[in-house]
Design a protein around this nucleic acid. Structure first.
Lengths: 150, 150
DNA sequence: TAAAATTGAAAATCAAAGAAAGTCAAACAA
DNA sequence: TTGTTTGACTTTCTTTGATTTTCAATTTTA
């Protein structure tokens, strides 16, 4: 447990604890821990994944950054995320959306937008890939909906 | 947000907020922000684009100027739908989302949801396919928006 | 005096340099 | 073997500066 990756992971978790999101500079962080910048990517790729309830944004170039968002850590959200799994059919997605609507987590128009973005026609792919893609994208949406900072 | 380009962008947006347009002297502005004049062009070219709903005029020589206009939003959504081609990069999508937000066609949280659904992380595909897929899905969202606020 | 050339004041362009994050594969460790 | 660390290389975004183009005002010239 004494490897750098775990330490960096913990550091990030600690830092974002209350705010639910964090914006870092990859290079500074690498500097701080005296490691290769790509080490940060490794940590992000292996620990801060959609499956674990994290989403990321980043920008390169001058003024660049990496931003990590975390889902709220309550059981319901975790369960919903977990229930999505590796593949997600259109119908299952609609069920989940309905439930999110009932629980007032999303509005009607937000439901419609998500449906429009991730319906079968929108994701023009062979079926098996499509459900995988939808699972992934939907997780990203879930994390956005249940961001720790709201 | 520590880079000059973003700061200049915000300055211009603030200044033109009420009137919907602004006339500046490129050199004075560059002076004010202590940057190269061409930096102003960079900001204009990357931020005050057609996608974001701005048009520009300018004149060189003595008494020269640059004028930026926020375009009148008249069936914006339909126009954007036309302009999205076969491929749509993440960045261009963000430009469009920003504009849809500015014109109050979608809320901030709707912007975030769409971004989450169609960001690079969500659409885990090879780059070319990804932009194709995004174009498709985004158009589906635009159509939904047109239906929604008719 | 009217057209033509000159000058100086802008803005536009373009390419190079700089800044930051991403990728990938090889080496290393458990 | 699996997971971690490192570094070389790539891509993206920003900043800077040299050069070019355009315009208005002024000065020459016919």
């Amino acid at each position: 447990m004494a490897n750098i990756s775990d330490i960096i992971e913990q550091f990030i978790l600690d830092t974002m604890e209350d705010s639910g999101s964090i914006e870092i500079s990859r290079n500074s962080l690498a500097d701080y821990f005296n490691c290769a910048p790509s080490q940060i990517n490794y940590v992000l790729d292996t620990r801060f994944t959609l499956d674990r309830g994290f989403s990321k944004e980043s920008k390169r170039g001058g003024g660049g950054f990496i931003k990590i968002n975390r889902m709220k850590e309550d059981d319901t959200t975790a369960m919903i995320l977990e229930s999505v799994g590796e593949e997600l059919s259109y119908n299952r997605m609609m069920q989940i959306l309905k439930r999110l609507g009932q629980e007032k987590i999303i509005s009607k128009s937000e439901q419609n937008i998500i449906r429009a973005a991730l319906c079968d026609e929108a994701l023009s792919l062979p079926l098996l890939m499509r459900d995988k893609m939808r699972a992934n994208a939907f997780k990203s949406v879930l994390i956005e909906l249940m961001r720790g900072d709201k």
